[in-house]
Design a protein around this nucleic acid. Structure first.
Lengths: 257, 257
DNA sequence: AACCCCGGGGTTGTCGGACCAAAATGTCGC
DNA sequence: GCGACATTTTGGTCCGACAACCCCGGGGTT
């Protein structure tokens, strides 16, 4: 870190598009670049605010605003309960909230969400069939058993369903797809609760999950994909049967635990 | 906005999980809640920093840190060149950078990215076939014509390819899928440049694009999907033929224009 | 040697106040 | 009605300060 960094960024700016970029944003970009380029590796400790301020030749308040931005982007983080700041790779959760907010505020329809899930889930199942390991298979089996035992408890049913799909997503071993799916599922599955409250679809759900599990256990990716697709299509029918408007914007149901 | 807001948030916190949450975060949550609940509608002007500080009973610096967070989340924004802050719904671009950073720093492999694109693009093409309008069809035709004329200029070829897929994504009229695809494509298509530099694949690209365009024009969603799938699979072959390691982590190639 | 307690130093969170440039707004003359 | 000019807001940055708290190492105990 040095004084030159800001001048560099400023020069790049002059040649570029926007003039008069605030200093705190220059600081953000400067630090961002250090992290993305690997100069500051994940796990490294970030210098103290005062040190950064001195290094960049700006006031600590300015540095603090930059840090808030980086923190929000998940590029730096303080270990639970601690004060010290470390470089870190953004996590699912960092992204997920933001995508969730975007979907809600853009008033994206439930149909769009469903269509996305119909895009993701079958592919994830297909990938999972090829790559799932015994641990995850065991977890899935346990999940299905618990689901069978919870046919009466709508709330648990929904939670178990979410878990079922989450395990499959993990088993796909494709972090990019997981990243995309996570926020969707966050908004999608709560709709399950509404549907289950009106319909008695527990049996259908267990049936589908069993079929999918079986396909995964035998590493039959085509079957896994096909059953998952049926499962998702089936859910849409349930949604409409329960008399919900599929074109209505997705709604936001509070914070997670 | 009132003094009560922070006490509410603080109370919620005491009952909740984390103790000692910083005030600026309470301010964030408070404003966030106002926006998500619709109390502050999209398009409304956000009060001045001094007003907010007075309202919440905190120092202006504290409010500013909160604003940086909200700004980063895309919940508030200042209209181009202006100073005033307005409530707004997060946009693609807000999300996109963050996901991009996450993918790079998590060292996600190009294979995972490719698999994601193979998940998205065919579905997007399928949806587009059902919903594309004449304007977008015209835009696609123009794009393909320009591509034919630019067979020698690798750089333009890549840009036109990106545009081609972007138009289709828009034509799908599924904003949720677009949201997911955007960051992937941002990292994916730059790889095109590397491939095109080593292979002379312009003809194949134009051929595929023409087939896809034709399917879209005739609203044949099955064909659109199938050709797009071939197109993506084909790209992977090119990537390997050009002797790139498909398991290597995705790399970050600077800022967009 | 391993462990726990403790206190000083480092770091963050928050505050008060101040200045300037640029944007926003109001005013006036045409 | 509409532009040019004067005035008020507003955001960006800085200075300096202080308390609470974490961090880490030293010293004592087992």
């Amino acid at each position: 870190m040095s004084l030159a960094d800001l001048s560099n960024a400023a020069a790049q700016e002059r040649a570029g598009q926007e003039r008069n970029e605030p200093v705190y944003r220059l600081v953000v970009r400067s630090i961002e670049a250090k992290i993305m380029s690997g100069e500051w590796a994940v796990g490294d400790r970030v210098p103290a605010e005062t040190a950064l301020a001195a290094g960049f030749g700006v006031h600590r308040s300015t540095v603090r605003e930059a840090i808030r931005v980086l923190e929000q982007n998940g590029l730096v983080r303080r270990h639970d309960g601690g004060k010290l700041l470390y470089v870190t790779a953004p996590r699912e959760a960092d992204i997920s909230e933001k995508v969730t907010a975007a979907i809600v505020l853009q008033e994206i329809s439930f149909f769009e969400l469903w269509e996305s899930m119909r895009c993701f889930e079958p592919v994830l199942a297909e990938c999972a069939a090829m790559r799932i390991d015994d641990d995850m298979l065991a977890a899935l089996r346990a999940n299905v058993e618990k689901t069978k035992a919870a046919l009466e408890d709508k709330q648990s049913l929904v939670e178990l369903d979410i878990e079922f799909h989450q395990i499959i997503a993990r088993a796909s071993r494709n972090r990019a797809l997981q990243l995309s799916r996570e926020p969707m599922s966050q908004l999608f599955y709560p709709a399950f609760l509404k549907v289950f409250s009106r319909l008695n679809a527990g049996e259908r759900l267990v049936f589908a999950h069993e079929k999918i599990l079986q396909a995964l256990a035998t590493r039959n990716s085509a079957e896994a994909r096909s059953w998952m697709d049926k499962h998702i299509v089936d859910f849409r029918r349930g949604y409409e049967l329960a008399n919900f408007d599929i074109e209505a914007p997705v709604v936001w149901s509070g914070r997670p635990a």
